[in-house]
Design a protein around this nucleic acid. Structure first.
Lengths: 213, 213
DNA sequence: GTACAATACGAAGGATCCTTCGTGTTCACA
DNA sequence: TGTGAACACGAAGGATCCTTCGTATTGTAC
């Protein structure tokens, strides 16, 4: 797999005074707006700065380049969702199947609610997707799922659980994205989420019981 | 869902003499090369022309703009795979389950074999994804699957079949792409394909038998 | 072999963009 | 109140790119 050039993503300077903290927050908010309203193609440092009501120069004092802004948005997003997902999956009060179902519903709806933003972010993703920082997020996501597997498929071997965790993670994220591109009503989204849950639970049942080849 | 500006994609002029036919073929071949070797970011009309050994002016005589080249590559790809998939799914000699399994294996391997090219093409996709021409391809894909459903879930209602067809189509394409990004050995890819097949067959079994809500 | 159509060429116009850097302003602290 | 650090500004340098168009060449039909 060929990888392409990628510059750093680390912040250039950390805001210390109140006004610069506010400025960075404004930039992030503006970046979301620009991405949603103008699309990835028009996501420009100057446009983001203008929308935020600051100068480009100020922007470049806290973000080393354009990709770092996009990455910041993605990272914030990842933190929010993975936290929510984690807490849903860990809710010991419910059986694993119910937890999975709740999680898929939540994820699908969240994907659909922010569809324009996420789509634009995905379109811009190739510019930061291979950054080491984003690997960390993926690893964290896998850990969450592997832990869930321990209660969902207790009789499976660790290797099986790892595989099943990957399968579930990939299926939910990939299908969530696809569903979010279809402009569905909330009821339809729920229906899709449940269909995917059913499918996954069926697959997990197999891992928990019989010996695979 | 917000859509962004998109110019036409139709060819500007149709080659009639032998040399121009060759020229167009060279451009297409060169476009694939550039996309694979340089990545979507460096996919440039001038670079494509140079790689093809022709001038940019000549390129613009047969392609109205850059997107039309990308679209041409994608359309060729779609034609090839959808034809192959169609014939696999229609093979009346095998039971539906075996056909599905064969199809998923074929598709996953084909995705993995051309991973760098497809990834780059996907990264460039937002520029043509909303074109009406590409809708036609999606519709055609759904038709293929709906027909398959008639033999795979004969007892389901047409509405259920349509839903199941979408589920299968989305799952296979979305997971195929994800698997192709993981740099796996052929054996691992086969294992993934079979796991996905099992999952889908389990889901389809439910559609064929019991009454859903 | 002549004339017209088809084709090929590639320099340059026009449009963005990303990023820097010199200058001016504001804040914190003594 | 004075001083240095933090901060903000935005014009402009530098780098691509997409696309056009006037010119030159090649193919074809008569």
């Amino acid at each position: 797999m060929r990888r392409y050039a990628r510059p750093t993503i680390k912040p250039r300077k950390v805001p210390v005074q109140a006004r610069s903290t506010q400025l960075v927050a404004d930039i992030v908010r503006a970046a979301v707006r620009v991405l949603e309203r103008e699309g990835p193609h028009k996501f420009t440092t100057v446009r983001v700065a203008e929308t935020a009501g600051v100068s480009v120069g100020s922007l470049y004092q806290y973000f080393p380049n354009k990709q770092s802004i996009l990455y910041r948005l993605q990272a914030d997003e990842w933190s929010r969702t993975s936290e929510a997902i984690d807490s849903i999956l860990q809710d010991e009060g419910k059986p694993p199947a119910a937890r999975l179902r709740a999680m898929v519903r939540f994820f699908f709806h969240s994907e659909c609610d922010e569809a324009p933003f996420r789509l634009a972010l995905d379109a811009a993703a190739p510019e930061y997707h291979s950054a080491p920082e984003s690997r960390a997020h993926r690893v964290r996501g896998q850990r969450i799922w592997r832990r869930f597997m321990e209660s969902a498929a207790p009789r499976a071997t660790p290797a099986e659980r790892a595989f099943a965790a990957q399968l579930v993670l990939m299926t939910v994220t990939a299908l969530g994205k696809q569903v979010s591109e279809k402009n569905l009503t909330r009821a339809q989204v729920t229906r899709w989420a449940d269909a995917v849950s059913d499918m996954l639970l069926g697959a997990l049942a197999r891992y928990g019981s019989k010996r695979p080849s």
